[in-house]
Amino acid sequence: MIDFRSDTVTRPSEKMRTVMAQAEVGDDVYGDDPTVNDLETWAAERHGFASALFTSSGTQANLLGILSHCGRGDEYLCGQDAHNYKYEAGGAAVLGSVQPQPIENSADGSLDLAKLAKAVKPDDNHFAKTRLLSLENTMGGKVLPMAYLAQARGFAERQGLAMHLDGARVYNAAVALDVDVTQIAQHFDSMTVCLSKGLGAPVGSLLFGSQEFIARARRLRKMVGGGMRQAGILAAAGKLALAENVSRLVEDHANARYLAAQLNTLPGVSCDEASVQTNIVFLNVDQTVAIQALASTLKAQGILISPGYQGMRLVTHLDVSRSSIDRLISAWRACL
Rank of each mutant, 00 (worst) to 15 (best):
S56H: 09
V181E: 01
A128Q: 01
L263M: 10
S190E: 04
A44C: 06
D32Q: 14
A156F: 02
M312H: 08
T265D: 10
Y76T: 03
G73C: 05
R72T: 11
A236L: 03
A43C: 02
S270V: 13
A236I: 02
I329L: 13
H164G: 00
A23V: 03
A93P: 03
N255F: 06
F54A: 10
S270P: 07
G154A: 13
Q22A: 13
A236C: 07
V289C: 14
R216Q: 14
E40N: 07
T316S: 11
K222G: 11
M191G: 03
D286M: 09
V19D: 04
L135P: 01
R218V: 04
V269C: 12
L135W: 02
Q183R: 10
R257S: 09
L133P: 00
A176K: 03
G73S: 08
K299I: 07
A44G: 06
N264M: 11
R158M: 08
V285L: 15
V29Y: 05
D180S: 05
F155W: 09
A236P: 00
D124N: 13
L63G: 03
H164W: 05
A117N: 12
T192Y: 03
G238Q: 01
C194L: 00
N62S: 13
A176F: 05
E45N: 06
Q101I: 10
A260C: 08
N255G: 11
Q262K: 15
Q101E: 08
G225M: 10
S13G: 06
H253N: 10
L199G: 00
Q80P: 00
P34V: 06
L259E: 03
H253Q: 15
M1N: 09
V179C: 13
I303K: 06
D326R: 07
V246R: 06
A114S: 12
R219T: 14
G96C: 01
V250C: 07
T265F: 10
G160F: 06
